[in-house]
Nucleic acid binder design. Structure first.
Length: 272
DNA sequence: CGTTAGCCCTGCTGGC
DNA sequence: TGCCAGCAGGGCTAAC
């Protein structure tokens, strides 16, 4: 499932291919993609525009357009963005096809149909992005900032670091892996963490995300990069999706539980 | 205000 | 072997 490292992988691959190109067609094959807006409305604002840059905020991909607007895509659970060609288009679960002025084709596939596409006008953008928290790889996300986020919070640390309004981009995989590396039990109240634990967690979040980006993200189910290749980080999972297997540090059995409504994997001995 | 439960959706898994 | 309930989960909304 695309989280920050997967979306960043896609952004890096796609940026040189789309930058400076004009959008020629914007064909939505599944009207649900643009809800609650009409597909025609999103198409009207994107067709004819030049893509001046490709950015990322949290798990959102932003196509910056030459009118100051932004095309925003979110892959949610099973979305895939594939760089393709007319003779190679895969029709399965195809939701959106963007054609560029140099013949480039970008296909949005999404089995579970949770993915979204939206257009933001220049004036709407600022307010739209205001609801998101710190970028975990930004220098401003440090132990002091994480300490402030945790302070006084009774809710478990795992849903706290997954709350996009506090920190943008961490999902279930990287929350589990970062908490294991920091030796913190995911159900601990955020406000109860010791200063050293906050420091450790901050640095493990950054390391985990950076390593995952290097390996082009994690492919568990359907995730693939823009050329359809799987990521490699799932091979290095220490706890996530490893229920019943031995902890790489202490050999104890990895357990699975539910925290904040999400499947959560942890080592009962290494994470206290 | 902070927190949680339910909804959306479809392919796969596990139990009988 | 075949069937089907249940599970997976990001982000939004409603409810407490």
């Amino acid at each position: 499932m695309p989280e920050l490292p997967e979306v960043e992988t896609i952004r890096r691959q796609l940026a040189p291919l789309v930058k400076g190109r004009r959008i020629v067609t914007f064909d939505v094959l599944d009207r649900r993609l643009t809800e609650p807006r009409a597909t025609e409305e999103v198409g009207k604002h994107t067709v004819g525009k030049v893509i001046t840059g490709l950015g990322r905020r949290g798990k959102y991909l932003r196509f910056e357009l030459d009118d100051g607007g932004t095309l925003v895509l979110h892959l949610r659970m099973t979305g895939r963005l594939i760089w393709t060609s007319p003779e190679k288009i895969d029709e399965e679960h195809l939701r959106l096809l963007i054609r560029l002025d140099d013949g480039g084709l970008l296909a949005f596939h999404d089995m579970r149909r949770f993915g979204t596409a939206a257009y933001l006008g220049q004036s709407e953008a600022e307010e739209y992005w205001r609801r998101f928290g710190l970028e975990p790889l930004d220098r401003r996300f440090n132990s002091t900032a994480l300490g402030k986020i945790c302070q006084g919070r009774k809710r478990p640390i795992k849903p706290t670091i997954m709350d996009q309004a506090l920190i943008a981009g961490i999902g279930n995989i990287y929350a589990d892996e970062s908490l294991f590396r920091a030796g913190i039990n995911p159900v601990r109240a955020a406000g109860d963490l010791e200063h050293e634990e906050v420091t450790a967690l901050c640095s493990e979040i950054k390391d985990t995300l950076r390593e995952a980006i290097k390996l082009h993200g994690s492919s568990i189910d359907t995730y693939a990069d823009t050329s359809g290749q799987r990521g490699g980080f799932q091979e290095t999972f220490r706890v996530h999706r490893r229920e019943g297997m031995p902890c790489p540090q202490c050999d104890s059995t990895i357990l699975k539980t539910k925290v904040g409504g999400r499947g959560t994997y942890f080592c009962p001995d290494c994470q206290s």
